Simulated assay, not measured.
Amino acid sequence: MSDTSRSQLRHILASRYTYLVRRLERVTGSKDGAADALHETWLRLESANVSTQVANADAYILGMANNVAIDQHRRERRHTHEDDADPQFEQHDELADPERIVAARRKVDDLKEVLRGLTPRRRAILLAARVDGQLNREIAERFGISLRLVESELSAAMKYCLQRMQDPGESFPDSRSGPRKF
């Protein structure tokens, strides 16, 4: 890679650092892991060997950082010794408690009953978004409706389910479970 390309990529990495960390955080699962991968990417840019001009600098840097994160993860896994892992397997798993299993199955049955109370389209939109992981844009195209209507239907379905599933005295903050790409 020419010195000009290297300096341009380093400048982009430095100027868009916060954005790149956020994007990479989804891959690594932590802000620290993303920052470590970007720091290593900065160092690797010095020895990168690309003969042509980079068309999409963000994609190039994120791809390189993604590979760095994968390498770091593999290294960490290799360093985990069997002795370190044994005590983890001997710990009691609270989630395997029969009472919790029965309670969870009841909640699933309750949720199925609540879903039957939704209109067919609203139920289909909710399942497409939360179970199938489709983007709102994809759902809008599938049903031939506007993106705004998908958002409205999804919000109404979530509120309906939350109200019906809520135990007496239990309160839920007005939040959604996890990030959604729109």
Rank of each mutant, 00 (worst) to 15 (best):
S30K: 05
D167K: 15
F172E: 11
R121E: 14
A55Q: 15
W42G: 03
L149P: 00
L13A: 08
E94K: 10
R105H: 08
Q91E: 14
K31F: 11
E170K: 14
Q91F: 05
V150Q: 06
R121P: 00
S47E: 15
L115G: 10
Q134V: 03
P98R: 07
A48H: 09
P173W: 00
D83V: 08
V114E: 06
R176S: 11
L62M: 04
R142T: 14
L62N: 05
S15P: 04
S171G: 10
R75D: 13
R116P: 03
L38V: 02
H81S: 14
D71L: 02
W42M: 13
N56H: 13
R100D: 11
T119K: 12
A128V: 05
D3R: 15
S177V: 12
K112E: 15
V27S: 02
L162T: 13
V102E: 11
A65T: 05
I70D: 07
R22A: 07
I139D: 09
R130W: 06
D3Q: 15
Q163R: 14
H73Q: 13
R44N: 09
Q88K: 05
E94G: 13
L62W: 06
T80E: 12
V68S: 02
Y17E: 03
L127F: 06
V21Q: 04
L118A: 00
E153P: 09
M64I: 01
D109P: 06
P120D: 11
I12D: 11
